[in-house]
Design a binder for these strands. Sequence first.
DNA 1: CAGTATCCGATACGATACTG
DNA 2: CAGTATCGTATCGGATACTG
Lengths: 111, 111
Amino acid sequence: MLTWEELPPCPVATTVRLIGNKWKPLIIRDLMEGTKRFGEFRKSIPGISQKALTENLRALEEDGLILRTAYPEVPPRVEYRLSETGESLKPILDAMTAWGTAYKKRLSQES
Amino acid sequence: MLTWEELPPCPVATTVRLIGNKWKPLIIRDLMEGTKRFGEFRKSIPGISQKALTENLRALEEDGLILRTAYPEVPPRVEYRLSETGESLKPILDAMTAWGTAYKKRLSQES
DNA sequence: CAGTATCCGATACGATACTG
DNA sequence: CAGTATCGTATCGGATACTG
């Protein structure tokens, strides 16, 4: 977990530091719907490799945005869900959804 | 400029594709305040290299999010500003600002 | 002033093989 | 099932030198 001092002064830079890459917003988007298992992410996020998925899940957990629960069963079952902090990202995701939709609509209309 | 077909189906993925990297949100954050010149970005975005700044400004221009105006003077003056599409990113930036602020506050309180 | 060109290291990412 | 380990590639990004 990062400390307060390690984060940039600018809040936008802080957000970028925590979720600003190719995969994290997609992982978080999925978790907004509820709990998800490792294998389910691989289906719902086209193109993500096992390694990239693992690394990003670990980083999100480390930063306190998601929670990981492993059930000691055979075969093993691991569930991921948003923490309260992670859930508070919803306004960002909603804004991204709305903007992405509008951008594609505009392009499709060649306006 | 990308075509509609080249963008991912998911609107969140589309947004990530267009502004989801280390520097673009910071450039856009600055332009929300108004027109800005090349050299001014270098002061207001600590740590950005000339190359990274140039590449990201070109990409944002290519995707229709910012506009570039070069004034034929000596010494040359170039101004960047948001397009209408770029300005429509404001809700995302606002949400990022609010979330980053809250995240840092929470960390500083060790809650 | 606002870039471009080049080099190079760091990091991100994907593919494959293997494991508790 | 849910990973870890390893390797190779690709992209990102910083430093430096140079230019209209």
